[in-house]
Nucleic acid binder design. Structure first.
Lengths: 169, 169
DNA sequence: CGCAACTGTAACTATAGTTGTTACAGACGT
DNA sequence: ACGTCTGTAACAACTATAGTTACAGTTGCG
């Protein structure tokens, strides 16, 4: 399956903004955390803005922040904002209509794939951005009540690009 | 999401074999129904054989048939045979470990993506190849008790390659 | 045997989607 | 006016899938 990392990156980006509370983040800052190019982030922010998940401001002192509270943004909202198609595709070219199986398999498969898509959406609709932030806390939170800034100050060297946390990639 | 049609094609192929009952099908026949090249089918048949879903015989009068009854093959079996990775991927390059969000988002996302994968697998494990064939019958079956052959005899012209049955592609 | 009909598989091209990069116009605060 | 941002176009790089040709090896049968 040609899975993309768009959903993962989008969740990451919005989680940063939830973490930053109301402070607008610059695409450069976000890119540094995601470990990619700022244009990639800006492109994604445009899509997220079209779905009314973030608001951006141009110009000096500009940046992006969440359009509403993290508990009012579900992972389904994010998924729908950045992933255009369902989990599976049908045939690239339509099957042979002269074959009794070929002529009807598309309809049957569509029903199955709809069931799959619904299941995915059901899972994602039950999780909010707030949940993601909460699950992050036990490891990342510090104990003195004041939250660490999104990125420590100052320039950082580019992170070595090695394998990610799991074998998903 | 870079969804592929591998699953759809695999289900199609195995449905043809369930329909053909015990008669071994040649890759050329299958390719004609799927409307693709026979080598593409043979490649997929190799994968399906590795997962013990089909058995193939080389040589003249050769071909492939199901390794067991259609009711003992679930769509999950097929999915696992031809789709190597989960529904979503994590970041292509690991996030910045110096960022409190970046360092932990992978773990949180992995949990979420596992939930999604489980939901997909749950749906697919509840459907068998027999179910697919049954859903096919109301449209394709004929009423005189004798099932139509998989492909009518004789060569056919290549089917025009137009849009498929839905907007999934 | 020797041929014809098959599968299995390598090697290559084509296509498509995503990601990465450079460049620049326009918005905005100071 | 200037510097700092976003928005966006244009294009290169990379990846996975799909399509194609070619051919070695297997099998059935005259």
């Amino acid at each position: 399956m040609s899975t993309s990392s768009r959903f993962a990156v989008a969740v990451h980006v919005l989680t940063l903004m939830a973490w930053a509370d109301e402070e607008p983040l610059k695409s450069e800052q976000v890119a540094e955390s995601v470990n990619t190019n700022a244009v990639v982030i800006r492109r994604m922010l445009c899509e997220l803005a079209e779905s009314n998940l973030v608001v951006s401001q141009t110009g000096s002192m500009g940046g992006s922040k969440l359009a509403r509270l993290p508990e009012r943004i579900t992972l389904l909202d994010i998924y729908q904002a950045v992933e255009s198609r369902g989990v599976f595709s049908l045939h690239r070219h339509p099957p042979n209509p002269d074959c009794p199986v070929g002529v009807n398999i598309g309809t049957v498969l569509n029903d199955v794939l709809d069931e799959v898509d619904s299941a995915v959406e059901r899972v994602l609709s039950n999780l909010t951005l707030r949940d993601v932030v909460s699950r992050l806390q036990p490891c990342a939170g510090n104990s003195n009540g004041k939250r660490a800034s999104v990125l420590a100050n100052g320039k950082r060297k580019q992170v070595a690009r090695v394998q990610s946390v799991s074998a998903r990639n």
